[in-house]
Amino acid sequence: MKFVADAKAFAAAMAAVQKICERRNSIPILSNAVVSAKQDGIELRATDLDLEITMALGAAVARPGATSVPAQLLSDILRKMAPGSEVMFESEPDGQVASVGAGRSKFRLQTLPDSDYPQMTDGNYSHTIQFAGDALLEALSKVQFAISTEETRYYLNGVFWNVDDAQPDAITFVATDGHRLATSYRQPDGDVDGFPPIIVPRKTISEIITLAKVAGTDPIKVEVSENKIRVTVGTTVLVSKLIDGTFPDYKRVIPAIGNRIAIVASKILSAAADRVTTVSSERGRAVKLTFTDEHLSLTVNSPDNGSAEEDVDVQYGGEPLEIGFNAKYLSDIMTVIGTGDARISLIDPGSPTVITTDKDPASVYVLMPMRVG
């Protein structure tokens, strides 16, 4: 195999592909990526057995062929090539070594046969929809932060995609870790009738977000089978296993809008919560919010370090209320909301709180309270 490719394009593609590979793996070949040269260009492929990515890019191919090379090492080499250079890639006839060079630089890498490299089998993709890249990016970015990292509840280690009765023409995306919940919906191009409820793993969500950033307003095709999802953006194809489990009934967690409504600038509230919890030595970083007429006070008391208090302007017309939250969880929601006002719906100190924003009515956040002294 022998080809010449633009160093910048090759490096960008390899950087995306190597993220899929596991650096420390009991199966050595899974640290590699397959490089295939065909008449019309080259193809890169990597998998961790749960997720697979394939990317194609243009190249001048002198001799077709394929091999697998250490993904991280090749990515590092390409990243350090001089800007504007062209890279020559050639695998030796014995199939054990590949040479990579540009200008006066030349590297020889150990390879493994591409025939030994695992490949995920495609399923019968029963349903296909399409999103604009920026729409899918926005929806997944609104909920990603709430994905659980607790491996024992594996069915929460991803984002739930489903057709909600309240939004029958859209896909609703949901994530929760049991302490906070985020949901957002977007309408795709294509019929959502019969679209099956699926749980897409955390790592796959991260990769889809990366692809959506690159896509911009270009379309992203999503295909779903019984146990896999396939996402296509241009010449890049991502195939992933789905989480085999039952996502909890998230609608039961979202309470009705309470009779106490507070409106506050999200960035100001996030910054205030971060400041007052500086004195907190507790893992939960609890902060107490006291709502009174046109006034919100944030307080933290730490037996070891002292106390902190900060006042924030708020529009609030209900009965006075004290409620405690995990400051990080509160700040995460405010960060996702971004600039503008957050609308906080309160019921009582022991009930979940609903947070929304007028600039994105398609997204809803639920935060569980915590006991504070």
Score class of each variant (00 low, 15 high):
Gln119Phe: 03
Gln130Tyr: 00
Glu90Met: 13
Thr128Tyr: 00
Asp134Ile: 01
Phe107Gln: 09
Ser91Met: 12
Leu78Met: 13
Gly133Pro: 04
Arg108Tyr: 12
Asp116Val: 04
Ser68Asn: 09
Leu78Thr: 07
Gln96His: 10
Ser115Gly: 07
Phe107Glu: 13
Glu90Leu: 12
Arg108Gly: 05
Ala139Pro: 05
Arg63Glu: 15
Gly95Thr: 02
Ala71Trp: 03
Ala71Phe: 09
Pro113Arg: 06
Gly101Gln: 08
Ser85Met: 03
Arg108His: 15
Gln130Met: 08
Ala135Arg: 08
Ala82His: 06
Pro93Gly: 07
Glu86His: 12
Pro93Thr: 11
Leu109Thr: 14
Asp116His: 04
Ala71Ser: 11
Pro113Trp: 01
Val87Asp: 04
Thr67Pro: 02
Glu86Ala: 10
Ile129Cys: 04
Val143Gln: 05
Thr67Gln: 00
Ala139Val: 10
Tyr117Ala: 10
Leu112Arg: 13
Asp114Ala: 15
Ile77Phe: 13
Arg108Asp: 14
Glu90Ile: 06
Leu74Arg: 07
Gln96Tyr: 03
Ala139Gln: 02
Arg104Ser: 14
Ala102Met: 06
Lys80Val: 02
Ala82Arg: 13
Gln96Pro: 00
Arg108Thr: 10
Gly101Ala: 13
Leu140Phe: 02
Gly133Phe: 02
Ala62Glu: 14
Leu109His: 15
Pro113Thr: 10
Gly123Pro: 00
Phe89Val: 15
Phe131His: 04
Ser68Pro: 11
Pro64Thr: 03
Arg104Val: 13
Gln72His: 08
Val69Phe: 12
Gly65Thr: 01
Leu112Gln: 15
Ser75Ile: 02
Asn124Ser: 13
Asn124Val: 14
Gly95Arg: 03
Thr121Phe: 00
Met81Lys: 12
Glu86Asn: 12
Pro113Gly: 03
Leu78Ile: 09
Pro93His: 05
Lys80Gln: 15
His127Ala: 06
Pro118Leu: 04
Glu138Asn: 13
Asp122Lys: 09
Gln110Cys: 08
Lys142Pro: 01
Gly65Arg: 00
Glu90Asn: 14
Ile129Leu: 11
Val61Phe: 00
Asp122His: 09
Asp114Pro: 06
Asp114Arg: 01
Pro64Arg: 01
Ser105Gly: 12
Ser105Met: 09
Met120Trp: 04
Gln72Leu: 11
Glu86Thr: 10
Gly103Thr: 09
Gln96Met: 10
Ser75Leu: 05
Gly84Gln: 08
Gly101Val: 06
